[in-house]
Design a protein around this nucleic acid. Structure first.
Length: 647
RNA sequence: GCUGGCGUAGCUCAGACGGCCAGAGCAGCUGAUUUGUAAUCAGCAGGUCGUGGGUUCGAGUCCCACCGCCAGCUCCA
């Protein structure tokens, strides 16, 4: 029987029933045959070696695509499992999926994997790959599978759990075997182990079975696999690049901030240079808040436990709060993990009318959250941090317009700091929720509409909203493509209820306002940490703590250097004169290492002509004889805070 | 919190098997040098070897506990 397949480009191919994807790829071209790892027929992924028996839409998956790499990595995970079972008899294996940029496999084994074990395993994997063992697919009944995997309890659990995404539909399960090693797997796989060109094991760690900390802890090995040595090298280079940008290294190295051990985990201090950047961030934040109609409020760092009872934090958040201090007549005081209850009290400090709404309160509020020791991560996840927190109280009718405005605000803010790629998550009503389902729907709809209006690419995270309301989290991509969660806009139905907030409406009926929590930077500390990584420590001119270093060539140019500095300072620039007796090369190197955006070199010629030599960070070639007044004006202009506000 | 790894000067690192006064480079200080675009030379100073116990004639090296850091799990701004 002749079958007919439609390819993605709209062309058609025909072939006899029983022909394989490999044959088909070969018929199209030898390059494609080499790159092919699987085919997709009517949405179903099949091994290259699977005989095709139906016509339909067909796509050949190559190892240059993410899908193709997933298959590659999945196969690499199998080979890893094979190596572990070879080298560590008695170990049992759980699951080994592909993940972003790699794969992992979890093992039940009493021996933790050490770095030297990884080298041994890698060697064993190389042998298995060199042997070019074919992956052979087979279906079997569940009963038979239970027999085959009888000594592997995790596999048994998977077989019994009937999760089709892990095994197969119906009563049959599929397994893949190569040279005596059998793994439960839905496939597809590459045709043979020899197709794995570039595999590397990266690290080992513990991981809970099924991601549940109450279940057994397994030993996980992470690895990566690529279609070529070249791609693997590029990936490893990307890892190095990320390491080079690590804010935990750059922060102390550039004298921005530090985490003195004496303070305890997750608590940082800002040095003057980091403090300058923070000041500029905060100035900018306040300016934008003012522009968008926010008012500034301030609140203390602690409050009686009763407040947190009313707000619901003691019920829902207590495990993240520091233990109470007992004062005076036994009153308990708690350090704040959030600012919202304080702002609610400001709202409630007097009667409110519809004429007052919306009320938008903003605060750079220091909060403290008890984070489990293992999750602390530099400035990105600290125990003490500052939220650029705001709470907007409005009517239901005002909600859509307010959300539009908040999103606009967030995007302006992020753009100003050099981010241009945004992705939003819209988290909707979870199973456990408070409030009126209809109101939820209205709010979710309004959030969605705001995203569409703002032209922000987004995905809907069904059921992932907080119990008190739906939310938008805005993520950015940094210079090297990493995704960071930054801003958040959350609708809250619970807090106005808990505190019995109300306003007098036009018909003189008291109604409950809706509340919007929003943080544009999220946490100032975290935002700053991300900025350091985004810019690799080389801040743009408007944010750089030291904008210009003036380096006299010799002592006799020092006076002129100081005049240059004064001129620059007079137009608002932050300047430093390097009057040390080092050679010029050393002064340049020092300024570049400290990532100062501009170095001005002044020598005899410059003194005579009122010019400077100009060298900018990131440029290898300097400019000579640049007239001072011009460059001062140009830099002053460039150093202004950005303004991406519409209108 | 869990699993594993790690902790020697401000930073990056040396310090087989436990054994004379714990080393280097950079940074710092002092002096010399006055230099036109990514490291001038010399000298000096700097360490409770994360903390506390223990084993030992003797501990930076071995054991235990705690603290902190790193990777991941879980959780999250």
């Amino acid at each position: 029987m002749t079958l007919r397949w439609e390819l993605p480009d709209g062309s058609f191919r025909t072939g006899e029933s029983g022909i394989t994807g490999q044959d088909l790829a070969g018929a199209i071209g030898p390059g494609l045959a080499r790159a092919a790892v699987a085919v997709e027929l009517d949405g179903e992924l099949l091994d290259l070696g699977r005989p095709l028996h139906t016509s339909g839409k067909l796509r050949i998956i190559t190892d240059r695509t993410e899908e193709g790499r997933d298959i590659l990595r999945h196969s690499a995970a199998h080979v890893l499992a094979q190596a572990v079972l070879d080298l560590f008899p008695g170990s049992t294996f759980a699951i080994g999926p592909p993940i972003e940029d790699g794969f992992y496999y979890d093992f039940g084994i009493d021996h933790p994997f050490l770095p030297e074990d990884l080298s041994r395993l890698e060697e064993r994997m190389e042998e298995l790959i060199a042997a070019d063992q074919p992956f052979i697919r087979r279906s079997m009944s569940r009963a038979e599978a239970l027999e085959v995997f009888q000594s592997h309890p995790f596999k048994l659990e998977i077989i019994e759990s009937v999760d089709p995404s892990e095994v197969a539909e119906g009563e049959e399960v599929t397994v893949y075997s190569n040279n005596g090693f059998v793994d439960l797997c839905r496939g597809p796989h590459v045709p043979s182990t020899g197709r794995l060109k570039a595999v590397k094991l990266l690290r080992s760690s513990g991981a809970y079975w099924r991601g549940d900390e109450n279940r057994p802890q397994l030993q996980r090995i992470y690895g990566t696999a690529w279609e070529s040595r070249r791609s693997l090298k590029d990936y490893l280079h990307r890892l190095e690049e990320a390491e080079r940008r690590d804010h935990r290294k750059l922060g102390p190295a550039l004298d921005l901030f530090s985490f003195p051990r004496q303070l305890g985990a997750g608590l940082m201090v800002w040095h003057p240079k980091g403090g300058m950047v923070r000041k500029l961030m905060e100035d900018h934040s306040r300016k934008l808040h003012e522009h968008f109609g926010f008012e500034f409020v301030f609140s203390p760092h602690l409050a009686r436990s009763q407040l947190w009872e009313t707000s619901g934090h003691l019920d829902f958040y207590s495990e993240n709060m520091y233990p109470p201090m007992v004062l005076d007549g036994g009153d308990q005081y708690l350090v704040k993990p959030m600012n919202c209850p304080f702002h609610v009290l400001i709202y409630r400090s007097r009667g409110r009318s519809y004429r007052d709404l919306p009320i938008r309160l903003s605060e750079l509020g220091g909060v403290y959250r008890y984070e489990r020791s293992g999750v602390i991560h530099g400035a990105l996840r600290a125990r003490g941090f500052t939220q650029d927190d705001s709470h907007t109280f409005c009517t239901r009718q005002q909600l859509p317009a307010e959300l539009d405005m908040h999103l606009l605000f967030v995007l302006s803010w992020l753009r100003d700091f050099g981010f241009s790629e945004f992705e939003a998550d819209l988290s909707t009503r979870p199973d456990k929720f408070v409030g009126d389902p209809q109101l939820w729907e209205v709010a979710e709809e309004a959030l969605l509409r705001s995203l569409q209006k703002g032209g922000v690419s987004h995905r809907v995270a069904e059921g992932e909203g907080a119990f008190y309301g739906p939310k938008i989290d805005v993520h950015v991509r940094d210079t090297i493509g990493r995704r960071w969660q930054m801003s958040t806009i959350q609708v809250d139905f619970a807090l106005p209820d808990n505190f019995g907030l109300e306003y007098a409406d036009t018909d003189n009926v008291f109604r409950r306002p809706v509340m919007i929590h929003s943080a544009k930077a999220g946490s100032i500390e975290r935002f700053f940490g991300v900025l350091v990584e985004h810019y690799a420590g080389a801040f743009p001119l408007w944010l750089a703590p030291i904008q210009v270093t003036v380096s006299p060539v010799a002592d006799r140019h020092s006076d002129y250097a100081r005049q240059v500095a004064e001129k620059l300072e007079s137009v608002g620039l932050r300047v430093r004169v390097d009057a040390s007796s080092d050679r010029l090369g050393e002064k340049i190197r020092r300024a570049m290492t400290a990532k100062h955006p501009v170095v001005m070199v002044v020598g005899d010629q410059d003194v005579k002509n009122a010019t400077v030599g100009l060298r900018r960070f990131g440029e290898t070639q300097e400019k000579r004889a640049v007239p001072l007044p011009e460059i001062a004006a140009a830099l002053a202009e460039e150093a202004l805070p950005p303004n991406s506000l519409p209108g």
